[in-house]
Design a protein around this nucleic acid. Structure first.
Length: 875
RNA sequence: GAGAUAUUAGCUCAGUUGGUUCAGAGCAUCGCCUUGACAGGGCGGGGGUCACUGGUUCGAGUCCAGUAUAUCUCACCA
């Protein structure tokens, strides 16, 4: 069957993927082999594939396929998480389109819609991963809200609560009024905004005097419960003990003194709103101030807002400024730039808000996790992230694990009374009832009197268990799967979630299994567009990965992603990278076409082919060593580049040209067979990177019953350096002749003659000279003891090579060339000699270095005398 | 404001514990070749005062200090 001149990926990709699935090659179960495990960073169940996923999952697939071919029991566990905030936001938005408000629904009704949404959109992303070639064990696909996974989460909550590590607290949280939930400090993005600084004057109670203070948020004056100055500030010392009247509210509040106030800023006087500012809250606690909350959950003003009740906070700001002006309390307004916290999820301006939240004490839990990374039991790649990690873990704050949402794991706490402590934590309602009866001392307490907390747990509170819970290690820590697969080997994820997720998984690992969750964490770069912006849906600057795959082939896109993505470095994405990947596919495909086009006859290899085969084999071994080294250092893009050059430069450009028969002549059977074998070896090495193409070529090379995906990877056991060196020498000769052809416009049709003057160097073996003869298109290569006058010349090591040409050689030019070379070599020799004459160098440098310097000096010396001889003759 | 990391060819990056006088790769670019696998090809070039300034050393892209710029993290004053 004739092969198409162009490689068409789409045809073979689905074919092989289905075949691999049918053969269950991706499936893993516990056996005697050494395990190699990766758990996928679970993407949002309702999300679609973006470029970050492409990069991330390509890397994981490379690692897992390589491990599989190295004979390990490779297990890649896929799955998704429920992404509370993002999913709930999407469901709310969709309901709004249908004219339904979330608040009009019961919790169960809403969850019904959420599940419907999840079933409809859920798993799309996992389907898309198949297109990329991801060899996940799909039988193990997990979702963080599966029954067993949910049970694990609740069990951990109950356990940590009973250990005294989870507590309920009244805290200032970052409130997202749009999503109506809290977000963590890490999810707040501070943005530079052009605001105003309003100078307001408050009348001193019982006097006609005023104090002036500055604020960016005049609407919060309705929540003011004090005005504060610095105790060291002489401007205000006479006011000690007095009170002021808050304008609009006409409320009397105390004047207090606190070191917190910066005397330089504004007027040196600060209004205190404990309910709506973290610093004010702390000052309020120090001075036992009243707390007045003026906002509703959607950031409109509540009944404390007086006549502004129901008005949005920003609208209120405008209105109240007008009122203050009318009242004569507005002194002046300045333009002012400040940083405003916004929600990473919704973009809404964060409203600091006091509320009851559930917290996990982190300080103690963080200790083993910090140690594990600092002592490299868990290796971070690249290492630079250790600093960031340490900084976080040493300053870790308690984790706010509650979210004011419905979609997620509902907090297993039941309230039975109005008191702060009138609640119990339990796995089930029945258990809760029993505990509540005990705790309350009321044996008659009924189920109907219990009310479960309305909030759900932070999504990370389920995903931090991921490497354990996917193997059921929380509920059942002694089960054979967790014993076998845990700790997993590598985790591949983005540095942005090093703390959110990675650190917390390490914490959970030590807390629940007394063991790290993975050996190494490979932190990928962030995929950016050409302008250096992060790729995001909202910017619309991300190409559709599926379209890319259709255009360049999965293999091409995989290669494009891998080529320029060293760990931890950003990846400025360019489609040209995928193009390079596609070109590489095509190159390999055409090499296959060449091979398949040859007519094969019984016979023996030529001397050149013999040498070529010897060399190619050793070159593969050499490359395998390099690749192995790259993988050990997680330098995946370097490993791929090594494969790329091995195939393109060595195999296609050099080897195939050596063994290629003359036009329309047949090839001998031995060379053909060996070439097919070498080609197959290359496909094995390529497979983890380009699985589809390599599998196809593997089967095209010969009819086989075994598939490449499970074929053992060749292992480097050393290589013959002499053969490599001999080939390099031959290649330099070829390059020398080609340069002469190029320079003098001598085409390939003109057969040339080469003379080699070895100058004491050992002559290149005959079969390697045959390579030179073939690739440089020579009629003969003859040794010579003397210079060939009038010939073009070049040097390889210390050997002189002459190519006689019927040209008018300009003696002047020749003289100049030689003189230049002489000058260079002499300079070189001087610098080397200086070192050798330097006592400190001789004393300080290692023996190897000194030896190398001596050899350099000797080689240079020899070349110099050779050139000097030539110069003598020219003169 | 504090800290971390970086700064090497037009672009993206290598450069291992300091040790070749031409600092490497891929892509891009340029010239030439080209009817015989592949123009998505072959061959060969050009291109860098290794951000800057000092220092340590026999020797610095590599180590140290400072400066500049960039990115990230943390903290943020109304």
């Amino acid at each position: 069957m004739e092969l198409a001149p162009k490689f068409t990926p789409s045809e073979i990709e689905s074919k092989w993927y289905q075949h691999w699935i049918d053969q269950q090659y991706f499936h893993s179960q516990v056996d005697e082999r050494e395990p190699y495990t990766i758990v996928i960073p679970p993407p949002n169940v309702t999300g679609v594939l973006h470029m970050g996923h492409m990069l991330n999952n390509t890397l994981q697939d490379v690692l897992i396929r390589r491990a599989r071919m190295l004979g390990k029991n490779a297990c890649w566990v896929p799955g998704t998480d429920h992404a509370s905030i993002a999913t709930e936001a999407k469901v709310v938005a969709k309901l709004r389109e249908q004219g339904i408000k979330k608040n009009d629904l019961s919790r169960d009704e809403f969850l019904g819609h959420a599940w419907e949404w999840t079933h409809k959109h859920g798993g799309i992303i996992l389907q898309q991963l198949r297109k990329l070639g991801a060899s996940c064990d799909w039988d193990r696909t997990k979702f963080t809200m599966d029954d067993d996974m949910s049970e694990s989460v609740l069990q951990v909550f109950v356990d940590l609560y009973r250990k005294g590590l989870i507590y309920r607290g009244f805290r200032m949280v970052n409130w997202d009024p749009e999503a109506k939930t809290t977000v963590s400090d890490e999810e707040v993005i501070y943005k530079e905004k052009n605001g105003k600084l309003f100078y307001l004057r408050y009348q001193i109670e019982g006097e006609e005097n005023f104090v002036t203070l500055a604020t960016t948020r005049p609407e919060t004056i309705l929540g003011d419960t004090a005005v504060c100055y610095n105790p060291n500030d002489p401007r205000f010392s006479h006011l000690a003990g007095k009170r002021v009247i808050v304008p609009v509210a006409n409320r009397s509040v105390p004047l207090i003194a606190d070191d917190y106030v910066d005397m330089e800023f504004g007027t040196g006087c600060l209004k205190i709103t404990p309910a709506h500012d973290l610093n004010d809250k702390e000052i309020g606690e120090r001075h036992q101030l009243e707390i007045i909350d003026i906002f509703n959950d959607d950031a409109t003003l509540n009944e404390q807002g007086l006549h502004y009740q129901g008005v949005d906070r920003f609208e209120c700001r405008k209105l109240i400024v007008k009122e203050l002006e009318a009242l004569g309390n507005l002194v002046k307004v300045e333009d002012y730039q400040n940083k405003v916290g916004t929600s990473e999820r919704t973009g809404a301006v964060i409203e600091p808000k006091l509320s009851y939240q559930w917290f996990l004490k982190m300080e103690h839990l963080a200790q083993p996790a910090l140690k594990a990374v600092m002592e490299d039991q868990v290796q971070l790649v690249p290492e630079k992230f250790k600093n960031t990690y340490r900084h976080w873990m040493e300053n870790v704050r308690d984790w706010n694990i509650s979210r004011q949402l419905w979609w997620g794991h509902r907090i297993p706490a039941w309230f039975y009374g109005e008191g702060f402590d009138d609640f119990v934590v339990a796995m089930t309602q029945a258990e809760a009832l029993e505990l509540a009866r005990q705790k309350s001392g009321n044996a008659q307490l009924q189920l109907q009197q219990l009310h479960q907390d309305e909030d759900v747990l932070d999504t990370w509170f389920s995903s931090w268990l991921w490497p354990i819970s996917v193997f059921d290690g929380i509920r059942n820590p002694e089960n054979p799967e967790i014993k076998y697969y845990y700790p997993t080997n590598d985790l591949v994820t983005a540095p942005e979630i090093l703390f959110f997720w990675v650190a917390r998984m390490i914490v959970a690992g030590y807390e629940y299994l007394g063991e790290k969750p993975f050996n190494a964490v490979y932190l990928t770069g962030i995929v950016r567009d050409k302008l250096g912006r992060k790729m995001s849906k909202s910017l619309g600057n991300s190409p559709d990965p599926i379209e890319l795959i259709e255009k360049y082939g999965a293999d091409g896109v995989r290669m494009g992603m891998l080529l320029t993505s060293p760990a931890g470095n950003d990846l400025p994405f360019d489609e040209a990278l995928c193009e390079q990947g596609r070109n590489f596919s095509n190159k390999i495909w055409n090499a296959l076409r060449l091979l398949k086009g040859w007519q094969v006859v019984e016979g023996n290899p030529s001397a050149a082919a013999e040498a070529g085969m010897q060399w190619m084999e050793q070159r593969i071994y050499q490359s395998l060593q390099i690749i192995e080294d790259h993988f050990q250092k997680y330098r995946i893009s370097d490993a791929l580049m090594t494969v790329y050059k091995l195939i393109w430069d060595d195999f296609c450009s050099s080897y195939l040209e050596i063994v290629k028969p003359n036009y329309q002549e047949p090839i001998d059977s031995k060379t053909y067979e060996q070439t097919a074998i070498l080609f197959g070896e290359l496909m094995k090495i390529l497979h983890p990177f380009m699985p589809f193409l390599s599998e196809e070529v593997w089967h095209q090379l010969e009819a086989r019953t075994t598939d490449l995906i499970i074929t053992p990877m060749p292992v480097a056991t050393g290589f013959n350096e002499e053969i490599i060196a001999q080939f390099d020498r031959a290649q330099e000769m070829v390059i020398g002749v080609r340069n002469i052809r190029n320079k003098h416009n001598v085409g390939a049709r003109e057969v040339l003659h080469l003379h080699v003057q070895n100058n004491g160097e050992k002559a290149l073996p005959e079969h390697f000279l045959s390579i030179v003869k073939k690739l440089a298109i020579l009629s003969d290569i003859t040794p010579t003891e003397v210079e060939i006058e009038g010939a073009q010349r070049f040097m390889v090591n210390t050997s002189a090579c002459y190519v006689p040409l019927e040209l008018n050689v300009d003696p002047e030019e020749e003289l100049q060339k030689l003189t230049e070379e002489l000058k260079y070599l002499q300079g070189f020799l001087v610098s080397v000699s200086k070192k050798l004459e330097n006592e400190r160098f001789m004393a300080g440098a290692p023996a190897q270095v000194v030896e190398m310097e001596r050899k350099k000096a000797a080689d240079a010396q020899q070349k110099i005398s050779f050139i000097q001889d030539q110069l003598k003759r020219l003169n």
